[in-house]
Structures are given as structure tokens and as C-alpha cells.
């Protein structure tokens, strides 16, 4: 069961995602954004980077890339669709996830490991984890500040929140000003998920953390149509 990793012009984490899935024994193929047929794939990941240079607004042009119709079709069919960092921004712009990601509270790029607390396991990103687990995963973004309109808040399906090392969620543990410390969300069905930090950067001890494994393993375990 193969994963499509979508490459927009300006995407840069595509090889890292393929590599990390490979470390976990799974296969993934790079797919150029002009591809329109993803029918041979069981799931799709939109990786991090700067799709179309992030021009106009992050994800604003990428949502119109030809591949996005197939991504939407997979989402509708209940197949796993995961957006990481810039991929999360694209999914929000495409209307597959609620909210949007805007400039960090301090208006500067943040590249450092952060702690995340698992809030829900009803998603392709967290199904193998346990609620309350605290994971250390690198954050790497300028527009990582999650905002969501009033109307969408009640139905919001939060899966990961920024916390301290003990799992405490407060302002001090919020690196970028995200609403309710939100780092990851899913749709109601749980098959479409977005996460701001990079789980693919935390799969080997040599690089500092293996806490990203549980998230990618959740995704891999979802590679059959799921019915949450």
C-alpha cells in the first residue's frame, strides 16, 4: 500500500517524508503537482516547504494545483490525507481542514523542538498514540499560528496541542500564538489531518528524538479506508 507524497514547486520536505516512512518500512513515491490520477495510492501526504513560494499567502496557489482534485477525492473516499507544516496550510486553504495558519505571534521563524500533547486518538495522525502522551517534535515554520473562526470552533477536532514537557498546556508552552495551543487538527471523520511540527524529523535517535514515529505509524496503520 503506497503513499503519494505531493511535490509542489517550492516543496522541500518531500524526500525527508519518503525517507522517514522508509525507516518505518513503508513505501512512498513522489508525485508532481500536475499529476491528476492518484488512484494507485492508498494515502497521500502533503509535505512541508514553500509551495509556489508561499506567494500571495501560504497554500493560496497550491490549492489550485491540478493534483488537488484527486487529494479531495481521496479525502471524500475516507482515505488518509495528511498535511505536515506547509501541507497543513494547503489543506486549510483547500477547505479540507478548518481554520488557517498565520504569522507567528513574535513575527519570526521558529526552528526548534517543541512538546505536543495528544488530545484525541480518533485520527489518522494519532490513532496509535494514547490521549495525554507528550511527544517532542521539531517545529519549523513562520506561519504556524493556528486561527479558526468562531463558527468552526465548536466542531473543531483538535488532535495535538503545544504543551510543556510534562503535558501542561498554557501560554508559556505556546510557541507561536496558536488558538488554544493547537498544533494539529483533523476533520470529523479523522481521515484528513494536519500538523504543524514535523514528525518526519523525529524518527531516529541519532537526530535527537523518535517521538515522531507514533504519528507516522498512526498514518501507516490507517492505509485502508477507515471508519472512525
Amino acid at each position: 500500500m503506497r503513499t503519494a507524497v505531493v511535490v509542489f514547486p517550492g516543496t522541500n520536505c518531500e524526500r525527508d517524508v519518503v525517507y522517514a516512512l522508509g525507516v518505518l518500512g513503508a513505501r512512498a513515491d513522489l508525485v508532481w503537482h500536475r499529476e491528476t490520477d492518484l488512484s494507485s495510492f492508498a494515502g497521500v501526504i502533503l509535505p512541508g516547504g514553500f509551495a509556489h513560494g508561499d506567494y500571495l499567502r501560504t497554500g493560496a496557489i497550491a490549492r489550485f494545483s491540478p493534483v488537488m482534485d484527486s487529494v479531495k477525492a481521496m479525502a471524500d473516499a475516507g482515505q488518509p490525507v495528511l498535511g505536515i507544516c506547509n501541507g497543513f496550510q494547503v489543506l486549510c486553504e483547500a477547505g479540507l481542514l478548518p481554520g488557517a495558519l498565520v504569522a507567528n505571534r513574535d513575527l519570526s521563524f521558529i526552528c526548534r523542538p517543541v512538546h505536543l500533547r495528544v488530545e484525541s486518538t480518533d485520527s489518522i495522525l494519532t490513532r496509535s498514540a494514547t490521549v495525554g502522551d507528550v511527544l517532542e517534535i521539531p517545529l519549523n515554520s513562520y506561519e504556524g499560528n493556528f486561527v479558526v473562526p468562531e463558527a468552526d470552533r465548536e466542531a473543531l477536532h483538535t488532535v495535538l496541542r503545544y504543551s510543556d514537557a510534562q503535558g501542561g498546556v498554557d501560554d508559556d508552552a505556546n510557541p507561536n500564538g496558536s488558538f488554544h495551543n493547537i498544533a494539529g487538527v483533523a476533520n470529523r471523520r479523522g481521515n484528513v489531518a494536519g500538523v504543524m511540527p514535523h514528525p518526519e524529523r523525529a524518527v531516529e535517535d541519532l537526530l535527537g528524538s523518535t517521538d515522531g514515529r507514533i504519528l507516522l505509524e498512526s498514518y501507516l496503520a490507517s492505509l485502508a479506508p477507515i471508519h472512525v
Binding site: 522541500n12 520536505c13 525527508d16 525517507y19 521558529i110 526552528c111 521539531p138 518526519e200
Partner: peptide, 9 residues
Amino acid sequence: EQYDHQLFL
């Protein structure tokens, strides 16, 4: 911390 220093793993 303003630089992506981890890309490419």
C-alpha cells in the same frame, strides 16, 4: 532558531 537547521535529516 530562525534558520531551518534540520532539513534533509
